[in-house]
Computed example of a mutant assay.
Amino acid sequence: MTTLITAIRSGGQTGVDRGALDAARAAGVPIEGWCPAEGWAEDRPEAPGLLADYPELRETPSPEPAQRTEWNVRDSDVTLIISPDTEPGSSTGSPGTALTKDLASSLSRPVRTVGKGDIEDIVEWLRNQGTELTVNIAGPRESEWPGAYEASYRIVSGLLRLSAGDQPSTPA
C-alpha cells in the first residue's frame, strides 16, 4: 500500500502553521517549508527567528512573507487552509490566508479551506488528489485567530491518524 501524506509543509508562522508542524512532528511525519529570510515570524522577529525551533525550514531570499507563501504553495502537491472563515459570520480578515487561496488558484494547485471540518471528508479529498502527497498547511496567525494553533494541531493530528491506514503494514 502507498503512503497518502509523505510530508507536511508550512511557513512556520504562529497559529495554523506551527500547529501543523508540531502535529506532524508528534506523528513522526517529515516537516518542511519556506520561511521569510532570517526566520522572521510575528513572535520571533530577530534572527534566527523560528529557525531555532524549526531548522527543517528554509529561508527565502526575501523577508516578505508573501514569497514564503508563494513558494510553499508552489512546492506542494495540495494546500489545505485551516480557517474559521468557512463558518457563517466568522472572519479573520487574514491577508496571508487570502493570498494563499489566490496563489493556489493562479498556480493551478488543488486547495481546500476547512474550519472545524470532518476529518474523514478531508482525508477523502486528499485521496482524490493522489498519493505520496506533500501537503501545505496554511491559515491565520494566532494574532488573527486566537486558538488557531490548537485547531490546526487537532485537525492535522486527525488527518495523519486517519491517513495512517494508507501506510504500508510491516510483515508479521
Score class of each variant (00 low, 15 high):
116 K>M: 12
7 A>R: 11
133 L>R: 02
13 Q>S: 06
51 L>T: 01
151 A>T: 14
108 S>Q: 09
135 V>K: 06
142 E>F: 14
128 N>P: 00
75 D>W: 04
147 G>S: 08
152 S>C: 13
110 P>R: 11
89 G>N: 00
143 S>A: 13
134 T>G: 08
98 A>D: 09
36 P>V: 01
78 V>K: 05
106 S>T: 11
27 A>K: 02
138 A>G: 07
154 R>N: 11
97 T>N: 08
41 A>Q: 11
63 P>C: 06
156 V>P: 08
115 G>T: 02
99 L>A: 05
126 L>Q: 03
71 W>P: 01
137 I>H: 06
67 Q>D: 11
123 V>T: 05
63 P>W: 12
109 R>L: 10
13 Q>D: 00
76 S>A: 15
20 A>K: 00
84 P>C: 12
24 A>K: 06
3 T>H: 14
162 L>P: 03
141 R>D: 04
22 D>H: 11
80 L>I: 04
90 S>I: 06
16 V>R: 02
149 Y>G: 03
73 V>Q: 07
19 G>A: 03
4 L>H: 07
131 T>Q: 12
154 R>I: 12
72 N>I: 14
75 D>G: 07
39 G>I: 07
129 Q>A: 04
57 L>E: 01
107 L>M: 02
167 Q>R: 15
33 G>W: 03
157 S>C: 05
82 I>S: 00
65 P>Q: 02
40 W>Q: 09
160 L>F: 05
79 T>L: 02
92 T>V: 10
67 Q>M: 13
110 P>F: 03
8 I>G: 00
129 Q>E: 05
121 D>Q: 14
26 A>K: 09
74 R>W: 03
96 G>W: 09
122 I>D: 00
59 E>L: 09
19 G>K: 01
47 A>Q: 00
150 E>D: 14
130 G>T: 08
